[in-house]
């Protein structure tokens, strides 16, 4: 093993190298943030067109509140995200505890949990469509929820497992020895330790569900009743660029970025590692 040491800090490099590295960083951040910034800026543009800035205005946000299609899609998305997150958080946390407590790391089990995170969305989408239609299940919000739990549960499980890796299981034994029931041990010993990870996993699941488009699109069935926000946005984009999309997009982005920032703060370093 190599001794752990920090990489050469920038201060020890030549000024020319230092300038190049900062330039690379500035360019990459410009590439990542300019498209989003333009979108958000345009949503506040009175004229709504990218051609000219005609003054700051909230009128595109106001016009969203009068659009019943968008409001019903937003409500559907909220229902799907909340219910699927609740189920996935419960099941994913129990799964993580089950695996880490018994230290069962079978290859098949790992593959089963890893699969929903890597399987192409379109494949899972058509698989569920085939499955639901073969069983003659009427599709709607409930089938979207069933589908979203599949990948949400995998993400919650991986976030909670990361936290449990450093958990000392002997304290649960100590708790049992002192006469606590399994439930009390869970509630008073295990849960407080993993709670930040559980909440972080739930927030992650919530944003994944709010943003998910393809699987929802295939699992929604015919008709407009179960249109979710991403489906609504997709339909609007196909129709053309409108200032309303810019405003709606800015709101959705703000929601997911807030949820993710909270999740990251609660669970420093676990997400995305």
């Amino acid at each position: 093993m190599l001794p752990k040491r920090e990489a050469t800090p920038m201060a020890e490099r030549s000024p020319a190298t230092r300038r190049t590295l900062w330039l690379v960083l500035s360019l990459v951040f410009a590439f990542l943030y300019i498209p989003i910034a333009v979108l958000v800026a345009l949503s506040f543009n009175e004229g709504g067109l990218p051609t000219a800035w005609s003054g700051f205005s909230l009128k595109w946000y106001a016009s969203l509140t009068g659009n019943s299609e968008i409001l019903s899609a937003a409500l559907n998305t909220l229902i799907v995200a909340l219910v699927s997150t609740a189920i996935a958080t419960l099941l994913g946390t129990l799964l993580a505890i089950g695996i880490e407590m018994r230290r069962q790391y079978g290859k098949g089990l790992e593959a089963l949990i890893f699969a929903p995170m890597i399987i192409p969305d379109i494949v899972l989408a058509i698989a569920l469509l085939s499955f639901f239609s073969m069983l003659n299940i009427t599709m709607g919000l409930h089938t979207i929820i069933l589908a979203h739990v599949v990948f949400n549960l995998a993400f919650v499980c991986s976030v909670v497992r990361a936290r449990l890796k450093s958990f000392d299981w002997s304290i649960t034994e100590a708790s049992a020895d002192l006469g606590a029931s399994a439930l009390t041990t869970f509630r008073r010993v295990t849960l407080p330790v993993i709670l930040p990870a559980v909440v972080a996993g739930a927030l992650l699941a919530f944003t994944l569900s709010v943003d998910e488009f393809i699987i929802a699109f295939f699992a929604a069935g015919a008709g407009r009743a179960s249109t979710t926000l991403p489906m609504q946005i997709y339909a609007m984009i196909r129709f053309g660029i409108t200032p309303e999309i810019n405003a709606l997009a800015s709101i959705v982005m703000a929601v997911s970025i807030t949820a993710l920032t909270l999740s990251q703060r609660l669970n420093r370093g676990v997400i995305g590692q």
Binding site: L42, T207, V210, I245, M253, L260
Partner: peptide
């Protein structure tokens, strides 16, 4: 650097249509 990755995929793609 990772933050944009967690915002909506559709919207990030749409931003390029705007550009």
């Amino acid at each position: 650097a990772v933050l944009p990755f967690w915002s909506n995929y559709l919207i990030r793609t749409y931003a390029w249509i705007v550009l």
